[in-house]
C-alpha cells in the first residue's frame, strides 16, 4: 500500500532496540492522524448537527444560553407543523421538474456524447470545448433572452419552461460525463453487432446504452440535484404559488412566515435535504464513479 509507505517510510528489518521506539512513534502518528480526521469531521459536520439539533427543540430552548447541543426537551412539533399542502405541492413541483429535466438532459446528452465519442466528426474538440465553455456563460444573460422568448411562446409559469431552463444549464456536464464513459467502453462490442447485421440505432439503444446505465444514472442524479437546487428560474419564470419549485417556494412562502422561528426553519431545511440525502446514499457508488471518472479524465 502506498498509504502505508507514505506514513512510515520503509523500515524493512528494524533492530530490536529501536523497534519499541519505532512502534511508539508509529502509534503516535496514527493517533494524531485519527485525531486530525475526527476534528476536521467535527468542524465540517457541525452545521448539519446544529441544524438537526435545532430542529428538534421547542422554540423556547432555541435561544437558550449557553446553547444546547443535545435538545433537553426534544420534540418533533416543528416537523409536524410543516406538513401543509403548500410544502407538499412544492415538493411535487420540484420532483416533476427534476425528473423531466433529468430525462431530457441525460437523454439528449447521451445521444450527443455517443456521437462525439464514436464518430470522427470534424471539429469534435471544438464542440467539446464549446460545451465546457458554455458552463461558464452568465446564466442571467441567458435568462434575459429566454424570458423574452418564453413570453412569446407562452412558456412562463409552466413546467416546460423550467425544464428547459434546468436542462440547458446541465446538458454540457451530461455530455462531458457521458462522453468520457463511452470513451472507456470497448468499441469491439459495437463492431461485432454491426457484423451481425444490427442497425446503428439498435446497437445504441439495445447494447450500448444498457451498458452505460451507471453513467446515465450519475448524469440523471446530477441533473436532478442541480434542478432541486435551482432558485433563479423558479423565482423569475413562475408567478403562481402552485407552480413554484422548492427553493423559490420556500423563499416566497416560508422565509417570512418562519422568520425567527429557527426550529421550524431547521425542520424545513432537514426535510428539503432529505430526498437528496437518500438519493445519494442509495446511489453513492454510481455517482462517485461517474463524477470522478468524468472530472479526473477531463
Amino acid at each position: 500500500m502506498n498509504a502505508e509507505a507514505l506514513r512510515t517510510g520503509s523500515k524493512p528489518l528494524p533492530r530490536r532496540r529501536s523497534e519499541v521506539v519505532y512502534r511508539l512513534s508509529r502509534l503516535a502518528t496514527s493517533i494524531s492522524l485519527h485525531a486530525l480526521v475526527v476534528a476536521s469531521l467535527a468542524i465540517l459536520l457541525l452545521p448539519i448537527v446544529w441544524m438537526l439539533s435545532t430542529s428538534f427543540k421547542p422554540l423556547a430552548d432555541v435561544f437558550s444560553y449557553p446553547p444546547q447541543f443535545i435538545p433537553r426537551n426534544p420534540t418533533v412539533e416543528s416537523y409536524t407543523t410543516q406538513f401543509t399542502g403548500l410544502l407538499g405541492r412544492y415538493f411535487l413541483n420540484s420532483v416533476i421538474v427534476g425528473l423531466l429535466s433529468a430525462i431530457l438532459a441525460t437523454g439528449a446528452g447521451a445521444l450527443a456524447a455517443y456521437g462525439l465519442s464514436r464518430y470522427r466528426l470534424p471539429g469534435r474538440n471544438a464542440i467539446l470545448m464549446f460545451f465546457m465553455a458554455s458552463l461558464a456563460f452568465p446564466i442571467p444573460l441567458l435568462m434575459i433572452s429566454m424570458y423574452l422568448m418564453f413570453v412569446q411562446l407562452g412558456l412562463l409559469n409552466t413546467y416546460i419552461g423550467l425544464v428547459i431552463g434546468h436542462t440547458v444549464i446541465t446538458l454540457p456536464v451530461c455530455v462531458w460525463l457521458l462522453k468520457n464513459f463511452f470513451d472507456q467502453l470497448p468499441v469491439e462490442v459495437e463492431e461485432a453487432a454491426f457484423v451481425d447485421g444490427a442497425s446503428r440505432a439498435y446497437t445504441l439503444f439495445r447494447i450500448v446504452l444498457p451498458m452505460a446505465r451507471p453513467a446515465l444514472g450519475a448524469s440523471a442524479i446530477f441533473v436532478f440535484v442541480t434542478s432541486w437546487n435551482e432558485l433563479l428560474f423558479g423565482l423569475t419564470f413562475v408567478s403562481s404559488t402552485s407552480m413554484r419549485p422548492l427553493p423559490a417556494g420556500i423563499s416566497m412562502s416560508f422565509l417570512t412566515e418562519f422568520e425567527g422561528a429557527w426550529s421550524e426553519m431547521m425542520a424545513l431545511s432537514v426535510m428539503v435535504s432529505l430526498p437528496i440525502f437518500l438519493l445519494f446514499t442509495v446511489f453513492q457508488r454510481t455517482f462517485m464513479s461517474g463524477v470522478t471518472a468524468g472530472a479526473v479524465k477531463g
Binding site: S40, L41, L44, L45, P47, I48, W50, M51, T54, V62, F63, Y65, P67, W228, N229, L231, L246, P247, I250, S251, L255, W262, M265, M266, L268, S269, V272, S273, I276, F277, F280, Q284
Partner: peptide, 25 residues
C-alpha cells in the same frame, strides 16, 4: 460522512447560515 456536506441544497445552506451567523444567538 464528509460527502454529506455536498448533498445539502443551497437554499438550506442559506437558511442555515442565517442561523449560524445570527448576531445575537
Amino acid at each position: 460522512a464528509i460527502f454529506q456536506v455536498w448533498v445539502v441544497p443551497w437554499i438550506v445552506i442559506a437558511i442555515l447560515w442565517g442561523w449560524l451567523f445570527s448576531q445575537d444567538y
